[in-house]
């Protein structure tokens, strides 16, 4: 990997949820922060998200769910990333996610869950710290 290659992020909306405000604001903010960002649009299956992540060779997969179906979809994405040998990708999440679920998700391999009211700078810092380029 060349040093000048920018960090590439996939922002995805798994499941049937149509609340895309957060995902879109985040996608745009991350672009402005200098990342390469792909936004999938709504109603993506975990299978499709993982395939896109691999095809596009992204470093980070950001999942956004506000419908309460996060446990199922996040788990599926993690499982499929492992299945296809792409477990090295950093998975982060956001949405309406209760504290107890956050902890469970972090246990199964979601690097961090960012709830409502998160400062986007915090997400930018988190990604930069976790994915060192040199």
């Amino acid at each position: 990997m060349s040093p000048e290659k920018r960090i590439k992020i996939l922002i995805a909306k798994p499941g049937l949820d149509g609340h895309d405000r957060g995902a879109k604001v985040l996608a745009r903010s991350l672009m402005e922060a200098g990342f390469d960002v792909i936004y999938t649009g709504i109603r993506q299956t975990p299978e499709k998200i993982v395939k896109t992540a691999i095809q596009e060779d992204v470093d980070v997969v950001g999942l956004s769910v506000l419908s309460g179906a996060h446990m199922y979809h996040f788990k599926e994405v993690i499982r499929l990333l492992k299945k296809y040998g792409a477990a090295d990708k950093l998975v982060i999440g956001g949405g309406i996610i209760p504290e107890a679920d956050k902890k469970k998700l972090e246990k199964i391999g979601v690097a961090a869950v960012f709830g409502p009211g998160t400062d986007i700078k915090e997400i930018v810092e988190f990604i930069k710290n976790r994915i060192k380029r040199n």
């Binding site: 499941g15 049937l16 949820d17 179906a69 446990m71 979809h73």
Partner: peptide, 22 residues
């Protein structure tokens, strides 16, 4: 819930994880 909003029956695989959630 979301499956109902999108006209998907609860027994459809697309409804998995979403039933009764929202």
């Amino acid at each position: 819930d979301y499956p109902t909003l999108l006209g998907i029956d609860s027994d459809d695989p697309l409804a998995r994880g979403e039933i009764g959630k929202a």
